[in-house]
């Protein structure tokens, strides 16, 4: 550790708020940040990460402890993304889902039985999706459903935290998570049919 860092740390009592400290912290977080960005936007993940890094650098003093850097950066990235969405469109895409509430991927798989010789039909179905397939399905979902789903079930944010980030009541987020899950299941089923995940051909091709 540099002498200046030691002095800065002893003066601040916690950490060294210098540019070097910032760089060291965020470089380790780049893969996770980029991954989150790719799940949130179809195009422009890199731009989103850059904008988040810029804002993070400006607000570096607000980071209370280095160990929280990962979550802190992700929160900033989601904030940037939310602001971009607001600029793009003022209308919330809360479209009616028709018979969506009746859709059950579990039952559809039982009824359609795409892998008739399998004892683990449902797991087989899920394992047919690699990360690119899953991303494609996620990207097809409207933003207001995709964002809570990604944050809650892939990045482990609490629902209350998501409500705060999205500036929406908790009940709204819970409802969107519920619809989002149904939409995700229906879209996974549609995608699996389109992409040939329900046949063995693909596995044999690879």
């Amino acid at each position: 550790m540099h002498a200046e860092s030691v002095i800065a740390m002893s003066e601040a009592g916690v950490r060294d708020p210098t540019k070097e400290a910032f760089q060291e912290l965020v470089l380790a977080e780049l893969p996770a940040l980029y991954s989150l960005a790719r799940r949130l936007v179809r195009d422009g993940a890199e731009d989103l990460v850059q904008e988040a890094l810029l804002q993070a650098f400006r607000g570096f003093a607000t980071l209370k402890e280095d160990a929280a850097a990962g979550r802190w950066l992700k929160t900033i990235l989601v904030n940037v993304f939310r602001d971009q969405l607001r600029k793009r469109s003022r209308t919330v895409d809360e479209r009616p889902m028709g018979d969506l509430d009746d859709f059950s991927l579990y039952r559809t798989l039982v009824d359609e039985d795409p892998f008739p010789y399998s004892d683990t039909l449902h797991l087989d179905f899920l394992q047919g999706f690699d990360s690119e397939d899953l991303r494609e399905v996620l990207i097809r979902l409207p933003d207001i459903y995709r964002i809570p789903l990604v944050l809650r079930y892939m990045d482990g944010f609490a629902t209350k935290e998501i409500a705060r980030l999205m500036d929406a009541p908790l009940g709204t987020i819970l409802a969107r998570l519920h619809r989002g899950r149904r939409l995700l299941e229906r879209e996974m089923w549609t995608y699996a049919q389109e992409a040939g995940l329900l046949t063995k051909e693909r596995a044999e091709d690879e």
């Binding site: 799940r39 579990y106 990360s131 299941e185």
Partner: peptide
């Protein structure tokens, strides 16, 4: 199946940079 879906989402590999 809900448990399997949750595990699937939580453990899906990160998007490669």
């Amino acid at each position: 199946f809900a448990k399997e879906m949750r595990a699937f989402l939580a453990t899906s590999t990160a998007e490669e940079i």
